[in-house]
Write a protein that binds this DNA or RNA. Structure first.
Lengths: 108, 108
DNA sequence: AATATTATTCGTACTTTTGCGAACAACAAA
DNA sequence: TTTGTTGTTCGCAAAAGTACGAATAATATT
């Protein structure tokens, strides 16, 4: 009988994907990627949601490892977590390549 | 004042990402990618969850446009939706490249 | 007509997510 | 010490997600 558990990689890809599964978080990541200043306030200004909600989204991105924060009293500076970003990039690249390899669809 | 709405692309990436945000759905996509036969039963056999739940996950993937289904009475054949798959691949590729362009992190 | 096969939908339960305003914490400035 | 600035956390509500077994539908087979 085959092992039905999910692999570590599958879990990891899903975790990253889940973190990216909200437009606000996509916007945050894109914003962080093209800014040299990335304070909470600047991020909040870009988004159509309350600061409490922004804070929550940032927490989720941080928990997923995609970003990191640093206190610079009285502000908080956020940025992409480069290492995990690279990892995500690799995993997604692998994933899409793997699934793109086969040329014909089995349907139609 | 800047437009705070999310762009179509951001919404689309988030939509794909959200659909990929569960290990079962990642497993399904990977399975479909490497099989020439892809009946519901085969998919179900690969996963540690009840068939009703598998059906739900398949529906979500279908709603997101990543897969498609076809009835072959009495079975149902599922497969990757090649067009949208390509689109997802492009969008994620763009997204990661864009965010990887800047070399130094703004945090330390 | 009764039975078997296959997968979806229904009904239910529980958890998680999303969102907000208000309260709070930490520190700087007046 | 009071006031102001900046973000986080709390408490709450509504919605969405996850999961299961049972019921159902659709079609073959006996």
């Amino acid at each position: 009988m085959a092992n039905k558990d999910y692999s570590i990689k599958q879990e990891q890809v899903a975790r990253f994907a889940k973190a990216m599964g909200h437009p606000a978080r996509i916007a945050i990541l894109q914003f962080l990627a093209k800014q040299s200043t990335c304070y909470f306030g600047d991020i909040h200004e870009e988004l159509p949601i309350a600061k409490a909600t922004v804070s929550q989204h940032l927490k989720e991105l941080k928990d997923a490892g995609l970003i990191q924060g640093e206190v610079e009293t009285p502000k908080v500076k956020y940025c992409i977590n480069r290492d995990n970003w690279r990892l995500a990039q690799e995993l997604f690249g692998e994933f899409f390549c793997e699934c793109a390899r086969k040329k014909e669809s089995c349907c139609g």
